[in-house]
């Protein structure tokens, strides 16, 4: 067993023990943390199975050539545009975007494009932006998008080419 696994198991059992003891002894902060844990787990369970089913179907049905053509080395600027459009439809939060970005990478998307996808999934999701505009105003959302999107694309290109030069490869089989 690796050292990290041991740390994880000790941490998990400590956390579980803390919750059980808090419940048994009526320790309020512990009960509060337990409630947070439950409500957040439920929120995750509402999204993750659906997202992973779509990822599975993507892996099986979408051809590697298609992804290479639209998101790969030869896609040019179009790859970035596609990444932003795709990201705007992402549900949940950036935690859903990580496995999707990983699948895109495994099918041949270039690094700059997947970092653009990740960044854009954080800031360009359509339902979230509508929500933002209704509470903070359209001007606020417009400035935020116009400033952040070029910065995300630019830094993703730089990060991608820096890592490509260093021969960075993602671990397989995640």
């Amino acid at each position: 067993m690796k050292r990290n696994d041991i740390i994880r198991i000790v941490g998990l059992s400590g956390y579980a023990l803390f919750l059980v003891l808090s419940l048994a002894l009526g320790f309020d902060p512990g009960k509060e943390i337990g409630r947070n844990f439950l409500s957040f787990s439920l929120a995750m369970l509402k999204i993750l199975p659906g997202a992973f089913i779509l990822i599975g179907l993507f892996e099986v049905w979408v051809k590697r050539e298609t992804i290479e053509k639209h998101f790969g080395e030869k896609s040019g600027i179009r790859g970035y545009v596609w990444a932003i459009l795709l990201s705007s439809t992402t549900v949940g939060g950036i935690y859903v975007a990580f496995p999707i970005a990983y699948s895109l990478y495994c099918k041949g998307a270039r690094l700059g494009v997947i970092f653009t996808y990740l960044g854009a999934a954080a800031i360009c999701r359509v339902p979230m932006t509508i929500f933002e505009a209704s509470f903070l105003g359209i001007k606020f959302s417009a400035i935020r998008l116009l400033v952040s999107i070029p910065l995300v694309v630019g830094t993703s290109m730089l990060l991608g080419s820096y890592l490509a030069k260093r021969n960075y490869k993602l671990a397989a089989g995640r």
Binding site: R8, I33, N36, L48, I53, G56, R174
Partner: peptide, 28 residues
Amino acid sequence: ALKIAAKRFLHIFPAFLTMIILVSIILF
């Protein structure tokens, strides 16, 4: 496809669990 979905989900599940635990504490 469904097999891949299940395998990937189980593989990343510990990382999600860690995040949920951290979130539950920070929210408190």
